[in-house]
Design a protein around this nucleic acid. Sequence first.
DNA 1: ATGCTAATGATAATATGATATCATTAGCAT
DNA 2: ATGCTAATGATATCATATTATCATTAGCAT
Lengths: 136, 136
Amino acid sequence: MKRNTRQRDAILGAISDARRPLSTQEILTEAQVVVPTLSIATVYRNLKDLTAEGWVLPVKLPGEADRYEVTKLGEHYHFKCSSCSKVFDIHETIKNKELPVPADFVVESYDLILYGRCKDCTPKSRNSGPGASKHT
Amino acid sequence: MKRNTRQRDAILGAISDARRPLSTQEILTEAQVVVPTLSIATVYRNLKDLTAEGWVLPVKLPGEADRYEVTKLGEHYHFKCSSCSKVFDIHETIKNKELPVPADFVVESYDLILYGRCKDCTPKSRNSGPGASKHT
DNA sequence: ATGCTAATGATAATATGATATCATTAGCAT
DNA sequence: ATGCTAATGATATCATATTATCATTAGCAT
């Protein structure tokens, strides 16, 4: 029979609170604030369960390990900061009609990944650039 | 001193002729048509050289190993067929102004990856679906 | 044609993310 | 409070893509 554990709560809590996709290491670190003895194996185990149960979704970026975020976010895209490496959700919308698609191809889904500088890492605000605050 | 080898020519030739990004295994298979003794190690070695010299570029898709294509293609996107798993180039253009970007973020580049059915794998043309011709 | 040595082929080794193992811990029904 | 056993923690193992090793091959300058 399925059991509720502090570990599972801490892991789901970390993902929910982050408001951006977290790597497995970030999840481990955040959840260890609540459960210091938490093991990376338990993180992976619970991520698999939580994904199968539909609570979280893997966020896949080219050339990188999966990050995870809560499911209820709806359609959105991702922005990766080239400075602090954090990934953010972009909830603005792109109209399907604007997608560049050749006639012969049937598009079932698509991923839009933006790369650049996040708010905290824009060069202009030089007192809040990378290094000004802790980054993961 | 640098030497021209049949292997290098065969590898670059395979990538040039493909007109779509090829995986390392596809490159090996295609180049072996010209140089049957070609080893996968030589493929990787030459891909590294050709990339460093600017002849080819790695194409990175989420959760997948790098594919390679020639550099001279200019700005474009990629389409992955969910049936035959081939990746195709999409040369249509998306206007930057249409990109969904929050005010605080500075976008330096972006990736658009489309998923769906390629021409050969559309259900409607049932005499040219997957299996009708050799796929990689 | 010869010699130097870069490049190759075959395969072992590595790196990394993820999974399996197993003794121990701790939910939760009783 | 007790017992059953799911879940955990620590770590070994696996899977895959890529790189290193090294004896052999083959460009190419002479």
